[in-house]
């Protein structure tokens, strides 16, 4: 009975959280389209999320391309299909692995930092102070962060994909004597708009999810320093899960529309 009731309360708190997040999202869209727009803060956040994550994303992407190519080579060689390497790598990176891995990295980097920042601002009454000084903290803190995450993630993913392909091309160049021209010719021969566009659209949603969950967890964090840690931690966990759910939905929809 006790276990059942604990499950029940767990379930109801889960739904409560989802409901609150829904409300939070609704508020985001309402405030997004009402004046004034905090453009300076938006740019600042874009810089924080975009440029400050660039190195991380590039290194991750590069290694991803490198490792992926090295790992796939023996299998493809077994089938005598090494010449399909650029097509295979480019399609899997552009379609799936690039967006998902980079979004996960950004969930760790951006999501947790938003969660921790807003969480500590909540805890130290900075959000209240902002509200009291006549500034809408939701607009200033939440809207700008969600929007800049939404805008910057696609760019990070594009850069990350590109760097991953360069990494892969380097391996092919060293191991398989494939020139860069041939590599990228094959890459572009293999890619279709149906690979590139849904994958890019998907990243906007990924960015939105990262910003939304980070802000939600931070903005509603509980008092105390433990609350801040919990906010940033659960922001990352929840975002990672949400990213896979979104990815599934995106692939599902793409599949319906293009097949």
């Amino acid at each position: 009975m006790k276990i059942l009731s604990s499950y029940q309360s767990g379930l109801s708190s889960f739904f409560l959280e989802i409901g609150e997040m829904g409300k939070f999202t609704g508020r985001y869209f309402r405030e997004l389209f009402s004046r004034p727009f905090e453009f300076r803060e938006f740019l600042k956040q874009c810089y924080q999320m975009g440029n400050k994550s660039l190195l991380l994303v590039s290194v991750t992407g590069f290694i991803l391309g490198l490792v992926f190519t090295l790992q796939s080579r023996p299998t493809l060689m077994e089938f005598g299909a090494v010449s399909w390497m650029p097509s295979m790598i480019s399609i899997s990176i552009v379609r799936e692995i690039g967006p998902v891995i980079i979004a996960l990295i950004c969930a760790g980097r951006i999501g947790s930092s938003i969660g921790a920042e807003l969480g500590s601002m909540r805890v130290t009454e900075q959000i209240d102070a902002m509200e009291v000084s006549g500034t809408n903290p939701f607009k200033f803190l939440v809207v700008t962060r969600i929007l800049s995450a939404t805008c910057m993630l696609p760019i990070l993913v594009i850069v990350g994909d590109f760097v991953a392909l360069i990494g892969s091309a380097i391996i092919e160049n060293i191991k398989g004597d494939v020139s860069f021209t041939l590599y990228f010719n094959q890459v572009f021969a293999a890619l279709e708009f149906t690979d590139l566009l849904p994958a890019t659209v998907k990243t906007f949603f990924f960015g939105f999810a990262i910003g939304l969950v980070g802000c939600f967890k931070g903005y509603n964090s509980k008092k105390g320093t433990a609350g801040v840690g919990k906010a940033s931690n659960s922001a990352v966990v929840f975002t990672s899960m949400l990213l896979f759910v979104l990815d599934f939905i995106a692939v599902f929809i793409t599949d319906i529309f293009y097949n």
């Binding site: 740019l43 600042k44 874009c46 810089y47 975009g50 440029n51 660039l54 696609p154 760019i155 990070l156 594009i158 850069v159 590109f162």
Partner: peptide, 15 residues
């Protein structure tokens, strides 16, 4: 910062 951001956005868009 804004210049760096601009460079990033433009290079992303170019790619």
């Amino acid at each position: 910062q804004n210049i760096k951001l601009g460079v990033l956005i433009i290079s992303g868009l170019i790619i």
